[in-house]
Design a protein around this nucleic acid. Structure first.
Length: 576
RNA sequence: GCGCCUGUAGCUCAACUGGAUAGAGCAACGGCCUUCUAAGCCGUAGGUUGUGAGUUCGAGCCUCGCCGGGCGCGCCA
């Protein structure tokens, strides 16, 4: 219905335009004015045309209005301001949305905008080397809400987590775990300062101990053999320990490595599940090596002449594709870089047939975009299908101090802690309540102290109020089909109806902009309209016809709140 | 130094992608509960949108300069 009104007005304007300025090109843009006195819809069409027609915008607007076909939905059409045309709808046209919501139910607002195109959203993809922290939480909340939003707007969405299970970071976690295990057996190898410090590493060491006793114990002297000193070069020291671990443990290294990986992965998965964030695919980086895709990719680039050798390493000429500098894909020691596996990963995504691929990355990865797009182009892919949404950092403040979020140092506030202190609903909402490219200062103390004043409760409260009224009303929702909506005549009711009617537009705009925060802001406004009405008018009045009409409006409001909150991953309690 | 993001009320953020008098929430102040949930409502106050120019009917939004904040510029991942 609301879409009908929009397209109805558009066609009226098109007709008027054809008559006032035949052949003129203009895209007809209808907006909902902020100010009530400016009507329900407004267009700046006349102003757009002013230059081309070399005429005063107001004059053009007046002509357009004169030529506008009559419409049974319009109360009036005004010329205003510098040349705006304001449309005011008849109450019946505004109220029709109530029935549309009740008929549509959970599907009200669903759009076909995406045309069921296959779309992949890859997000979180944190190294499984420790608990997820507050920074990951933002990517998780944003990615989950964005995915759900895009699905609701008509895309066929696959949610994917890229598991970095192949690199040095995982080796560091493996060796850290092993060293903690060895500590339990009195093996005197000092724990490296740049190993993973967190207590969870000790826990994993204990698990291995409990399961296999002394099976993986090796002498300290052998573990430290030929390892550069920490003082000289702590990274070389760590690499030396890793090399010795692999050599001394032989096939058992895989067990230790795998144990650490699967523990951390399972932990992250549980954490995210509790946060309402689910993935369809967990994609292993290691599999790209196992299937030879990484080597194949590098080979393809080489054959196409995009690689050259310098200082023993193979470089991808990414500067040919707009990057600042060329990038190594294969190191002097023969190992592929992370970039090489990422090229393979992205090629694999494209070969899986997605029409569009969205990567949600932390802002620190922005410099990475040109090289990935460049590589895709070099592999004859349409790199425009890849869209990267950068999420700015969440900086956590604790006791007025900026908290470090380094996983290796072990000094971070975990997502789990945050969820426990603030609650899942408030957490999801808080994260998504701002544009993704906005820096987020997460003041933990404030979040905790404000948890009762969090805007999420404002919306949930509106929902609970409707539930309470409906319970006391005690009627059957089905009987409202024949209710006379025309009885809803006061301004607050019409304003609320107009807000409901905007929901489908909000969904489409938010999906187009990859901006789930727009849904959150909409819901705040919707709840505001409802609360204002609730306080001003009584719903359960004696007049049965009026009562039913008001209950219908309340039910429609409840439905739209639910439809929006589902997308944000926030629950809607029936009472509070 | 170069690149990306960013600067809006005391604080945290919006602003339909260039539209009309820049809006909310916290915090402050004043009102509203013997009838559907006061986690609510109504009102007051709070602004030269960092700054200087430019583009045009019209700029918080676009361009350029300057000032401040965040991030990135590895044969790390």
């Amino acid at each position: 219905m609301t879409h009908d009104i929009r397209s109805h007005l558009t066609s009226l304007l098109q007709a008027a335009l054809a008559s006032v300025a035949p052949g003129a090109e203009a895209d007809i843009h209808l907006e909902r004015p902020k100010q009530e006195s400016h009507g329900d819809f407004a267009t700046n069409l006349a102003m757009q045309l002013a230059r081309a027609l070399k005429k005063n915008p107001r004059e053009i607007a007046q002509q357009l209005i004169n030529e506008l076909p009559r419409s049974e939905w319009l109360e009036k059409v005004d010329l205003a301001g510098a040349g705006f045309i304001n449309f005011t709808l008849k109450p019946a046209a505004k109220l029709a949305v109530v029935r549309a919501v009740l008929d549509g139910g959970a599907d009200f607002g669903r759009s076909t905008l995406g045309g069921q195109q296959k779309l992949q959203v890859e997000f979180v993809s944190a190294n499984p080397t420790g608990p997820l922290h507050v920074g990951h939480g933002r990517g998780a909340a944003y990615g989950a809400s964005l995915s759900d939003l895009l699905a609701f707007a008509g895309w066929d969405v696959t949610r994917e987590y890229y598991v970095n299970d192949a690199g040095r970071q995982m080796d560091i976690l493996g060796v850290s775990t092993w060293l903690r295990y060895l500590e339990r057996h009195g093996v005197a190898v000092p724990f490296p300062p740049n190993g993973y410090q967190g207590d969870y590493v000790r826990d994993m060491g204990a698990q291995i101990d409990a399961a296999h006793g002394a099976k993986y114990v090796r002498p300290a002297a052998e573990i430290l053999a030929d390892v550069p000193s920490v003082e000289a070069d702590k990274e070389a020291h760590l690499d030396g320990l890793i090399a010795n671990a692999k050599r001394l443990l032989g096939p058992d290294w895989a067990y230790v490595h795998q144990h650490a990986l699967s523990e951390q992965l399972a932990d992250g998965r549980d954490d995210l599940e509790e946060f309402g964030v689910r993935f369809d695919v967990w994609f292993s980086e290691k599999s790209l090596f196992d299937t030879g895709l990484v080597a194949k990719c590098v080979e393809r680039l080489e054959k196409a002449g995009h690689l050259y050798v310098q200082d023993g390493a193979k470089w991808f000429r990414s500067t040919a594709f707009g990057d600042e500098k060329d990038r190594v894909v294969q190191r002097e020691n023969g190992l592929f870089t992370y970039f090489a596996s990422d090229i393979a990963y992205h090629l694999n995504k494209f070969e899986r047939g997605f029409d569009k691929v969205i990567n949600i990355w932390g802002a620190d990865h922005h410099g990475y975009i040109p090289r990935v797009k460049g590589a895709l182009k070099a592999l004859d892919q349409d790199e425009a299908k890849l869209q990267v949404a950068l999420v700015q950092f969440a900086v956590l403040y604790k006791d007025g101090q900026k908290a470090s979020m380094s996983t290796r140092s072990g000094e971070f506030v975990t997502l789990r802690e945050l969820r426990r202190e603030v609650g899942n609903d408030a957490c999801r909402f808080f994260y998504v309540l701002r544009k993704s490219d906005q820096h987020l200062d997460f003041d933990l103390d404030l979040a905790k102290s404000q948890s009762n004043e969090n805007p999420v409760y404002y919306i949930q409260y509106a929902h609970a109020r409707v539930c309470s009224v409906v319970n006391q009303w005690g009627g059957e929702a089905a009987d409202l089909a024949k209710v006379d909506l025309g009885l809803l005549a006061n301004p607050r009711e019409l304003a609320l109806a107009a807000r409901l009617a905007a929901f489908p537009e909000v969904i489409e705009a938010a999906a187009r902009d990859l901006a789930p925060h727009a849904v959150a802001f909409y819901l705040k406004d919707l709840a505001g309209d409802f609360h204002a009405w609730y306080n001003a008018e009584r719903m359960l009045v004696d007049d049965a016809a009026l009562r039913d009409a008001r209950v219908a409006l309340a039910l429609a409001t409840r439905q739209v709140i639910r439809n929006g909150m589902v997308l944000l991953g926030v629950s809607c309690p029936e009472s509070m």
